[in-house]
Structures are given as C-alpha cells and as structure tokens.
Design a protein around this nucleic acid. Sequence first.
DNA 1: TTGAAAGCGCTACCAC
DNA 2: GTGGTAGCGCTTTCAA
Lengths: 331, 331
Amino acid sequence: MKDVAALAGVSLKTVSRVVNRESGVSSAVRERVERAATRLDYSHNVHASNLRRASGRTGTVGALLQDVSNSFSASLLRSLEDVARAQQTAVLAASLDEEEGREIALVRGLVARRVDGLVLMPATSRHEYLAAELRAGLPTVFVDRRPHGVDADSVTVDNVLGSRHAVEHLIAHGHRRIAVLLDLATIQTAEDRLRGYRQAMAAAGIPVDERVEVSDLRTSEAAEHAVHAFYRGGLVPTAIFAGRNDLAIGAVRALRSLGLSHDVAVIGFDDFPLADLLEPALTVVRQNVGQIGAEVGRLLFSRIAGDTSPPRHVVIEPTLVVRGSGEIRPS
Amino acid sequence: MKDVAALAGVSLKTVSRVVNRESGVSSAVRERVERAATRLDYSHNVHASNLRRASGRTGTVGALLQDVSNSFSASLLRSLEDVARAQQTAVLAASLDEEEGREIALVRGLVARRVDGLVLMPATSRHEYLAAELRAGLPTVFVDRRPHGVDADSVTVDNVLGSRHAVEHLIAHGHRRIAVLLDLATIQTAEDRLRGYRQAMAAAGIPVDERVEVSDLRTSEAAEHAVHAFYRGGLVPTAIFAGRNDLAIGAVRALRSLGLSHDVAVIGFDDFPLADLLEPALTVVRQNVGQIGAEVGRLLFSRIAGDTSPPRHVVIEPTLVVRGSGEIRPS
DNA sequence: TTGAAAGCGCTACCAC
DNA sequence: GTGGTAGCGCTTTCAA
C-alpha cells in the first residue's frame, strides 16, 4: 500500500480511501491510485485492515459439523454458505467425527482466528468450555444438538416426536416385533430417538425386547451386521426403525441379501438422495435440512448484527415421508 | 496480552514466548503467565500474530468447489480437510455453482485473506485472472478441470478414456443406439466425455445421431425430461450414457416411470452412495474421489512447504464399476 | 532468562 | 479533498 501511494504520488490514507471505496476522493486521484494498484499487483490485506478497524469483524464464520462429506452436514453447510455469502462472509468448515478433543481444539482455533460467529454440531455432551466465549458475546448457534451447561441459540429437530411417529406408523401397520438401530448411546439425538421408540411401544402396550434395541452403531456396515445377527439369532423382527440414514441403508443391504426386503418394513431417520429410488422406496422421517440451515444462518447473522435478546431454541418438527418400505405389513 | 503481562508482572515479550511455547522461559514465570492468561480469558489473536511473523503463513487454505452439497465436492472437501488438519490448517470452503463471477470474486476474497494455498474446481474456462497470484507464488491446485491460459498444478480424471470405456462396454453388449446426456457444453469435463463417446462410436463404425446427444443439462430433472422426450419422439435408444451422476439418476427416474428400467442399459459417470442398491444396480465410471483429494492435498502442501518445481499434472484413470444396469442387452 | 523498541499493513482521528 | 500521526495485537531484533 505504501508502494502504491508512492507510485501514485499520494498519501497512504488516500490509497486506503480508494481501496475501501470511501467518499471524498476526486475521481482523478482515484483513477491514478487504481492504476498504480493494478500495476503493482496490489492486493488488500484484510487481516491488517480488520486489526485496526473499529468493528472488529473478520467476515468469517466457523462451522463445525459432524462430517462435511455426509449429506446432512453437507447440505447444512451449503445453506449456511448461502446466507453467509449474502453477508460477504466466508465459512471455515471442519468435521468433528464425534471426537470431543477435536471439537475443543477447533473451537480454540476459530476463536484465535476471531471468527464473527460459530455454528456447532457438537461432538461433546458438556459445553462449559465455551462459557468464556459466550460471555464475551461470541455469536454461537448449536445445530442438531442442544447446548448443555451453557445457554446459547439452537436449532434442533424434535427427535422424540419424529421417532414416535415412525414407530406408531409401523404399529398401525400391524407390527409388534420392531427392532431399532441407533448411533452411539452418548449422542443426544440417538437417545431421543430411542425414547420416541419406547414411548410409542409403551403407548401401544407392546413389551420391549432389549435384544432388538441395538445402540452404538457407527457405520452402515455395523447396522448390516446387526440385522444379519437378528435373523441368525432367531429374533425375526417384522419391522426395523433405523435411527440414522446410513443405518437404514445398512438395514436395507442386509434385508436384500437375506431376500427379505419386501417382507420386513423399514423406516429410516433423516432423508437422503435416492431414498425414493430404492426398491421398495424407503419411508423416512425427514428433517428439513434447507429449513434448518436457513434458520441457523438467520439466527447467527442476527446475533452478529448485534441482537442480544435471550437465546432462542428453534425446534423443527420432522415429517414422515411415506414411500413404501414403511407400509409393508407383517407376514 | 498487555493485560496478561501486567497481571503476571512480566513483559509483553515473555507472554508472547509462553503463548508460543518458545524455549527460554523459567517454569515459574511460565506458570505465572499461564495463570494470568486463564484468569483474564486471554485468547491469542492469530491475525495480529501472522501480520508480524516472518513466515507470513495464515494456516488457512481456500477450497472453491462446484457445490459443497454434492457428493463429489463434499468428499473432495473432506479428504482435503484431513490433509489440512494434519498440517494445522483450516479450510475456507465455498461453492461456485458454475458462476464465473462468483469464482473471481471469491478468489479475490481468499487472496485478501492471505490464504496459504488455493484448491480450485473452476467455473471459468480461462484463468489468466490468476496470473499475478501464481507469479507471486500462491500455491494453487486445479482439481477436476485443468488450468487454461496459465500453468498450475492440477489433478484431473481422464474423462475421455473413462467415457470411451463406458461406451465401448455398451457397444460390446450389443448396443448401437446409445444416447448421451451431458452437462453444459462449455464445461471441459462435459466436452471430454462427449469426445470419449464419439471416439468409441467412431471406432465401432456406428454413425452418430445428434438427436440423442443432449448437452447443457444442469439438473437431474432436465435429464429426466430429456429421456422422456427420446421415447415420446420415437428415438428409442437402447442404452444411455449419462455424463454426470445426477444426470444418471434423472435417466433412471425417467426409465422407471416409463417401465423401461430393465430394458434400457444405463451407465453413469461418477459413482455415488447407493448406486449399488438401485434396481438394477447402476454401472458407473468411478472417479476415485479419495485418491483425488489426497493427491490434491499432497500437492498443495508440498507447494506450501516451498516446493517450486514445475507444475505437475496428475491424471487419474477412472474405472468402470460393473453392477448390472450397464449390462442389459438391447431387446 | 528477560525486556525495550521498532514495525507488520492497515484505519481512526484530527488537522489542513 | 487530502495528509500526518497514532495505534490495532502481536513478533522481531538486539541489548541487558
């Protein structure tokens, strides 16, 4: 910038004015400065700029998601990005893979980068480590999972409700032996989905068989093995409720290889591309990701803009998307 | 930092040493400083730090992809993230949606943020606008599409080869009326895939019917309409080669609704989750995304580490994954 | 082992 | 309209 000023024969401050499109520069001078800037390949340094700037904004937000390559996180990132772009803001994205240490280290990194805001799909179950930042006013929105031990904005889905509806749907179609596949028991959404399952079973007066309640499934393959184990072990559930989309896929794979895909009902939690093209098409509990992402963006940027009202907790109702696999009757 | 120094009764420089874990601080002093830092909720400001630092690194790289919510871009982002994390580097991710203006604006933004490196899946077809940055030594890796008008590292897939293999495979199964669905004709990968198609047809001595060569398809729905149009128009291809994964999905949808999914062969370019669970399972040309991403990361960080050897162009050979839909014979 | 002063690239503030 | 000076939060250099 010094060089540009020298070449254009003006002061530093004038170059700064031109670069920032401030008013009060004659067009002759402006043009001279711009020519000098191009000639020297000048590129503005926003970090130096922000360091001195009153606003303190960096035009960057952080998004810590479960895994940017899974369709739920990826879609969320995309909708956040769209809101951010409209606010001239860039998004730092990272995957946590349910690793608590990674979450804490990454949050520290983002804070050190002075992000204007934070979107967090936490891997941790206690969030006291964020207390200082929240007190200092760092705009933070929890997504998919609520904050624990601190208060902050959140956008979540009513997992208990979605899960209960799914299981009620299966029961209404005549099922009583309904298996449930779940993620790590320590993850709150998994716990809520189990609760919904149990509520529906209890309401229908069906005793729960813990041998068909399988938790801690981390991958599609794990779900596949679990389903194979059911039938090898003679448990023969007539319906399966899968508490995450890849677990549903694992279940479908297992049923295919067992030749049972048209005999055993399946409902998955969380929709995904192509669920409608499977045979039978997969009935799912849909979380409206676009709506969640837009809501997260709206909340985050209203905080960044200075909204200091008490934390808001947006709860989105998932909907059952009927496609076929969930309407198979017990044989 | 000033406050921490005051509270700990030491100089600024000493606090800096402690924060950066430099040697030459007595453990008594170190501990006093650390206590003061925690008490004041001190958080290091990496931007101020980097401003003065000799290395000039920011520990941030930019990734401009086609759309972070599609599975190809998302997987690429993920593998890049894994390499970056190992280098203590964060990733700024953004989607271009094939918009040229967006690409140029975002590159400017990333340069102004002084990213250490850039991964670019360009929307533009000419890249002279990057010349100054490349000359200045900004580590840049093109992915999926080669640079034009400038020289820079690239990791691409041999699209002509992959496409030719796919069409040869269809021809070997007895097809002669093979339709092809493609993205925007201006996108180089689309053009290459068309070339591969034509090479295979020419080599087999099959005349090309331009009515079944459909370009400029942007969405799954567009592909679906195109396929419907074939059969309404009496063109009745016996096989379809789809030059992008969502176009293949659109084709499958159309064939389903026409009741032809077991009569017309389909091969898609680019694998995706669940392609094996469709009925019939989808035969695809697979681009090994994990390998591409890892290669991109390796190249990028070797440049960041100071490797100034001439640009390298890594070309990855795609492979045909045979699953069923591509082996249907003409009826 | 510790500290003082200069300066990274830029903008705020006030003077002309 | 334009420019000088101070200073953002930190690291560098060199001296103690």
